[in-house]
């Protein structure tokens, strides 16, 4: 016996998650571009657009909950839907971090940047890659890929440490830069959190495939 209707619903759920993921990736990359280009107007538009991400997340969540109520999923199907509920939450939060980057840009306003942004765009690209790969791992149920992405979080952490050290040094040289340095640090911190959300998605991929709930912070669990 096959469950064609249900299987199509699961495929649609997955496709909706990928679409949400694309919106979030786009928002994150654009937020960084706006900050770099000092385009405050574009940041304002981006902050407004976060609503679209939020609405889509709630729509997917409602669909997933309806599937639970109406199809009584078990085993692998249940794990997939449970993972989906968690993943859309993580995606929405990454969307919020993109919005925060926009707000930082708005708050810096027309002040010139105290330094050209180099490591933060690097961080953003790395997160974009991690996010894309984590969703790819989800769709392909690819354990190895999920585990590899979790390890890549270190790259983002290292970049964050570098940014932190650099901004501290600049503050010490010129206290009048405290406000902007603080805002930039906030932006970097948001990016660092976004990468953590990608590793959370990978943890759910591992759950989806193996049924095991692990905290990727504990490396021995990664096998």
């Amino acid at each position: 016996m096959s469950r064609t209707t249900f299987e199509l619903q699961l495929v649609k759920l997955q496709e909706d998650i990928l679409a949400l993921g694309s919106l979030v990736q786009e928002a994150l990359l654009e937020a960084m571009d706006h900050l770099r280009a000092r385009d405050v107007a574009a940041s304002r538009a981006l902050v407004q657009r976060d609503r679209v991400i939020d609405d889509k997340r709630y729509a997917i969540e409602a669909d997933a909950l309806a599937l639970i109520a109406m199809q009584q999923p078990m085993a692998g199907d249940m794990r997939m839907i449970a993972a989906s509920l968690f993943i859309v939450n993580e995606l929405e939060r990454i969307g919020d971090y993109a919005k925060s980057l926009g707000r930082v840009n708005i708050r810096i306003g027309d002040e010139p940047l105290m330094k050209p942004l180099v490591d933060m765009p690097r961080m953003t690209e790395q997160i974009d890659r991690m996010l894309g790969h984590s969703l790819q791992a989800f769709v392909a149920r690819d354990l190895d890929l999920a585990r590899a992405i979790i390890r890549e979080d270190e790259i983002v952490d290292d970049l964050y440490d570098q940014i932190y050290a650099e901004l501290m040094t600049l503050i010490m040289q010129d206290v009048s830069k405290i406000r902007q340095a603080n805002l930039l640090l906030m932006a970097a911190h948001n990016l660092e959190r976004a990468a953590d959300r990608c590793t959370n998605i990978c943890e759910r991929v591992i759950y989806c495939v193996t049924g095991k709930l692990i905290d990727a912070g504990w490396e021995e669990d990664l096998g």
């Binding site: 016996m1 469950r3 999923p73 078990m74 085993a75 193996t210």
Partner: peptide, 19 residues
């Protein structure tokens, strides 16, 4: 059994793919 069955046959039955 209903969250992470060990056997694929069990999985298929429990998720309504056969039987």
């Amino acid at each position: 059994m209903f969250t992470s069955p060990q056997s694929q046959v069990t999985e298929d039955y429990i998720t309504g793919r056969f039987g």
